[in-house]
Design a protein around this nucleic acid. Structure first.
Length: 805
RNA sequence: GCGGGUAUGGCGGAAUUGGCAGACGCGCCAGACUUAGAAUCUGGUACCAACCGGUGUGAAGGUUCAAGUCCUUUUACCCGCACCA
């Protein structure tokens, strides 16, 4: 019987033997397998972590047996709000909480038998680690990619913290799920937008799931269009000012009947003397700001707006004067914060025009559709009308022609826009990396000298953020006081800290050389280990960690630190484990399964085997207690194999030989494709046959245990130890013999009109003609058909024979 | 609204990519062992008819000798984004 005592025994021995230590051996072929390092929360490892780590552990263990030098590291993404909130509540220092949690996580990870190289652990909250996080920040600053700016930021009232766009998707806080409000604040930003194009292009050279690529592409949101200048008329006089808009549909410029600017558009402030209804506009701006996410999204169809009175613009193509409106359906953060509205061919503009009674001019037609009830937005088969020199052209051509015209006449330029915004890179919190910046009255924002890193967090007792949304560090008076690194006069430190995503944006580089005090990692080690060959993790990080870390890595490549453009050659994602009720596991639903409970009752290998067997690794699957018992039963059957082992078969057993070889082949291929469920099913089938035969040879048992070991390492090792004095880790992955799998005679199904009738045994090398002849002579055939009425015979060797009558 | 995905027995899920639908596991039924139970081992298990046979992969059409797989239409659910100008 398999029991959990077996687990501990082998975990200790593996550790003593250093089997999982990655060697910086440049001669050996390498494999770098990575999993997302966990945030060590108080509640311990959850099933999501476990599933992610088991998946890559199987690959890592297999690669070692295949002769690779494997780097399979683990670490701790330990900065973050929950620890800090816990510290605020209990008064226990975050350092202490973090250390306790890391210890717990380490024990748990070991108890599941993950083959991590624990000697390479990194902890993002360790000054020897965040020294390099700060170093990278200084490099970004040096290259103009970190800047401080007063902008509209996402702010979570609950957490009292500024969030990035990625952290506030759907208008909700990533952490507390609370409502996000917009706030004007001076914060540090990283210019990730400068890397939009590189992040997009990089996707072409990596092996990521298509859905992941697509999601990142959408997040980056590239669009090609043009900026066009509309001459501004204020107080009935033409000004020198232009209202610049961004459009992807320059072809529709003759259909523009009004302009819309965002409520915060600077034009309002600048021309307040000419505008007749400034107060009304300010009031609109304030009320728009107060709208909740629900009102903005759900009631989006109900367009609101105010006309800017006293100001108009001139359409540069028609010289017609157009009214300017303000509406919150135009965002200051995208394009120029102003649009040319073409109600005939844009849903939003159409709704707005309908509501405010603005003229609608159709400029594209398919010959039948009119735009009285709804806009015509189909572009593929439309041709231009009411559009002067564009008339008669198909849409695509019209876009080109209009753009040429605009460029030639200097009224517009081609322009590519990205939806992605710069990364708000400052949190008003204690438990994060201090920003290594000094605020000097004379010199402004001055970076620390590289040799003065790390800038270590002061030891505070009170971690509460300030009332005005300032960092707890603002209270650390002694720490704040410093001198300007440039001119030497008294100055103050920056009190915001970095977001949690900072440490995780480069941690995979530190594993490569974790104790190096002079560099992120040595050049030789980076060259040897990069890129990460395979990165497995959750889908929730696609537009967060995965995009941030690609950005940092690409930057480090551009400044010559790392050796590859992209950090991860291959990315895979595991599916969710749902509760027994089929719902997402959550404390509030009370359907959470603690992996530790499962290990205590059934052993680590049962948990591992079950989780891999439950269904396709990439799909979500509900937890099922009975399934666990099935996995346990299988492992018990493996344990008992020892009893029926013989040194060699009395006479050659072709059937067992064949099944073992088939199993090696299937498991080898399926592991590599993360099709763990079918790999395990095949191993079960194999064991079932062995039991039926009541015997297995030493060689076959050894081979079987070797291929089982990535899934169930403790059980495999235990049985191995009974028949061997070595370790599985010291053996090599078995080769399969293809010739043993191919049978001389195969059973082929015979169909009549596509319906299965009977099977026939045929030489596997038989040609089409031979097969047809053999079947025609088969006595069974007459039972089903009259040979004279055969219209056609389809023979696919190895697959099927079908008679059409 | 846009983008992506999923749908197969009582349940979790297989199906070499167009070639015997339901591998493997759970559950259930039967048998062996046992005083008995547990455990273990063996066999059975899509549905209807229960004899020939017929019907079946969310629904409706289509292509094909042959469709879970391809095409068209459609429904439900899940995930992501959301006024992207």
């Amino acid at each position: 019987m398999y029991n959990k005592e077996i687990d501990k025994k082998w975990q200790n021995k593996w550790q003593d033997k250093n089997f999982f230590k990655a060697k910086d051996n440049k001669e050996q072929k390498k494999f770098y397998g990575l999993v997302e390092f966990p945030y060590p929360s108080g509640s311990g490892l959850h099933l999501g972590h476990v599933k992610a780590y088991i998946g890559m552990d199987v690959i890592a263990r297999k690669k070692r047996l295949e002769g690779y030098n494997v780097l399979f590291p683990i670490g701790w993404d330990a900065f973050g709000l929950p620890t800090e909130n816990y510290a605020i509540k209990t008064g226990i220092h975050p350092r202490e909480v973090t250390d306790t949690n890391i210890k717990k996580f380490t024990e748990q990870a070991k108890s599941i038998g993950f083959s991590f190289d624990f000697d390479r652990q990194v902890d993002t909250t360790d000054p020897s680690y965040y020294k390099w996080t700060q170093w990278i920040f200084l490099k970004l600053f040096e290259h103009g990619l970190a800047y401080k700016d007063e902008t509209e930021v996402n702010y979570c009232n609950g957490c009292q913290v500024v969030l990035s766009n990625e952290e506030s998707q759907g208008g909700k806080c990533d952490r507390c799920n609370g409502e996000i409000i917009q706030k004007t604040k001076e914060v540090w930003m990283l210019k990730i937008t400068d890397y939009a194009e590189k992040l997009l292009q990089g996707l072409e050279e990596v092996d990521f799931p298509e859905s992941v690529k697509l999601q990142q592409q959408n997040w980056i949101g590239k669009s090609k269009g043009a900026e066009v200048d509309f001459k501004l008329v204020a107080g009935k006089k033409e000004t020198d000012e232009n209202l610049t808009v961004y459009t992807t549909r320059l072809d529709t410029i003759f259909g523009v009947t009004f302009m819309v600017i965002a409520p915060e558009h600077p034009l309002i402030e600048k021309y307040k003397d000419s505008i007749l209804n400034v107060e009304e506009l300010i009031e609109y701006k304030n009320s728009a700001k107060k709208k909740t996410e629900f009102e903005r999204v759900q009631l989006a169809k109900d367009k609101t707006g105010v006309e800017v009175k006293g100001i108009t613009v001139i359409n540069p193509f028609t010289n017609k004067e157009l009214p300017v409106w303000v509406s919150d359906y135009v965002m200051m953060g995208y394009g120029t914060g102003a649009i040319m509205a073409v109600p005939a061919h844009d849903t939003r503009d159409f709704e707005f025009a309908k509501k405010f009674g603005i003229e609608i001019v159709q400029v594209i037609t398919d010959g039948k559709t009119t735009v009285t009830e709804e806009p015509y937005i189909e572009i593929t088969e439309g041709t231009m009308i009411n559009s002067d020199f564009l008339n008669g052209k198909p849409v695509k051509e019209a876009i080109e022609t209009a753009l040429d015209y605009a460029t030639t006449n200097k009224i517009g330029t081609p322009k590519t826009n990205y939806y992605m915004k710069d990364w708000a890179f400052a949190r008003q919190r204690y438990w994060g990396e201090p920003l290594p910046i000094t605020k000097c009255e004379k010199c402004g924002l001055v970076p620390l000298k590289y040799e003065d890193l790390p800038l270590v967090l002061p030891n505070l007792k009170d971690f509460k953020p300030g009332e005005g949304g300032e960092s707890p560090l603002a209270k650390a008076e002694e720490w704040i006081k410093t001198t300007c690194p440039k001119c030497g006069i008294p100055a103050e430190r920056e009190t915001d800290t970095m977001p949690q995503w900072a440490g995780s944006s480069w941690y995979f580089l530190r594993y490569i050389d974790p104790r190096n005090d002079n560099e992120i990692a040595s050049k030789e080690n980076l060259k040897y280990w990069l890129p990460v060959d395979w990165y497995n993790g959750g889908t929730e990080h696609v537009t967060r960690h995965l995009i941030y870390s690609r950005f940092w890595h690409r930057f480090l490549y551009d400044i010559g630190i790392v050796t590859t453009k992209e950090p991860y050659a291959k990315r895979s994602a595991q599916g969710l484990i749902l509760g027994t009720d089929g719902e997402k596991m959550s404390k509030s639903r009370g359907n959470v399964i603690d992996p530790q409970d499962v290990i205590n009752e059934y052993g680590a290998d049962t948990l591992r085997t079950y989780m891999l067997f439950i269904g396709d690794y990439a799909d979500a699957a509900p937890w099922n207690e009975n399934g666990i018992k099935g996995a346990k039963k299988f492992l018990d059957r493996v344990v008992r194999l020892e009893n029926i082992m013989v040194e060699d078969y009395q006479k050659e057993d072709n059937e067992l030989e064949e099944e073992i070889n088939r199993t090696i082949k299937k498991v080898t291929e399926d592991y590599e494709a993360m099709k763990y469920n079918t790999a395990i099913a095949q191993m079960m089938t194999c064991i079932n046959l062995v039991y039926k035969k009541g015997v297995i040879s030493r060689k076959h048992l050894e081979q079987f245990l070797t291929i089982l070991s990535p899934t169930a390492p403790h059980v495999a090792e235990e049985v191995w130890s009974k028949i061997n004095s070595t370790y599985i880790e010291e053996t090599t992955w078995p080769m399969f013999d293809e010739s043993k799998i191919i049978k001389d005679e195969i059973e082929m199904p015979v169909q009549v009109n596509g319906v299965f009738k009977f099977k026939i045994s045929i030489d596997s090398n038989a040609s089409k003609e031979d097969i047809e002849k053999i079947v025609m002579e088969n006595e069974n055939l007459e039972k089903y058909i009259d040979k004279n009425k055969i219209k056609k015979v389809i023979v696919v060797p190895g697959r099927i024979i079908n008679f059409v009558v």
